[in-house]
């Protein structure tokens, strides 16, 4: 059967996420407030993913929150909130070898929000909503790579396309969910997150 790509993609997923998390943690100190906010936002996202994941299929009020966390608090917070959301919510939805890849994808959602925040700091809710909408599809496309490499043979573009097409309706639901939730709640969320960012920034007056 030739190279066992399923094995390699899973290993690549595991190693990348471990290295990314270690790297993000070691590079500069995370402040106590950042730690607490990351944990709280992750719990909120997890609740959104695990609870509505069952009831509303793929309409989850989660991905937009990760995106906005990255947009307001920067790449590190965005990445951690994103990466830890699938890790914890999969305890409810089903843990598996797909978890590392999901963690990478969700982490990327947070990082993309941060990159967007750097390039367009004044981006309005409409722009962010469009970005969230695209992530609905992009997430499905990236996750299909893992599924394709493990369960499909031969590994051709055609089989990948079919797998992607089979999941298209789910991806569309996810994208639509992101669009709706970000359009409805995005503006308020950014406002609340910005308010807490001000609270998090501690400046010491050294020469008082």
């Amino acid at each position: 059967m030739g190279t066992n790509w399923g094995f390699y993609t899973t290993l690549i997923g595991i190693f990348s996420i471990v290295l990314l998390m270690l790297g993000m943690e070691k590079k500069g100190e995370l402040s106590t407030r950042q730690v607490a906010v990351i944990a709280m936002l992750t719990a909120l996202c997890t609740a959104g993913r695990a609870v509505t994941g069952v009831g509303l299929l793929f309409l989850q009020p989660t991905m937009f929150l990760v995106e906005l966390a990255g947009f307001v608090y920067g790449a590190r917070v965005g990445f951690f909130v994103g990466a830890m959301t699938p890790l914890i919510s999969n305890f409810f939805n089903g843990q598996g070898p797909w978890t590392p890849w999901q963690m990478i994808c969700w982490g990327l959602v947070g990082v993309s929000g941060a990159v967007f925040g750097v390039i367009f700091p004044r981006a309005g809710n409409t722009t962010l909503t469009v970005l969230c909408f695209f992530w609905g599809y992009l997430y499905g496309a990236i996750m299909d790579i893992w599924q394709w490499s493990v369960f499909m043979r031969p590994l051709t573009f055609k089989t990948y396309f079919l797998l992607w097409a089979a999941g298209f309706s789910f991806d569309s639901l996810r994208a639509a969910g992101n669009l709706l939730f970000c359009a409805a709640l995005g503006y308020q969320t950014v406002k609340i997150l910005r308010y807490f960012r001000k609270k998090m920034d501690v400046q010491y007056l050294e020469n008082l």
Binding site: M21, L22, E25, L30, V35, A36, I38, A39, M40, T42, A43, L44, T46, A47, A50, V51, F80, M84, L87, I88, F91
Partner: peptide, 17 residues
């Protein structure tokens, strides 16, 4: 810190609900 954050949010999840 990663471990602490995971533990914290796992604990926070039922509180959130």
């Amino acid at each position: 810190k990663s471990v602490l954050m995971i533990a914290l949010s796992t604990r926070m999840f039922p509180t959130m609900v």
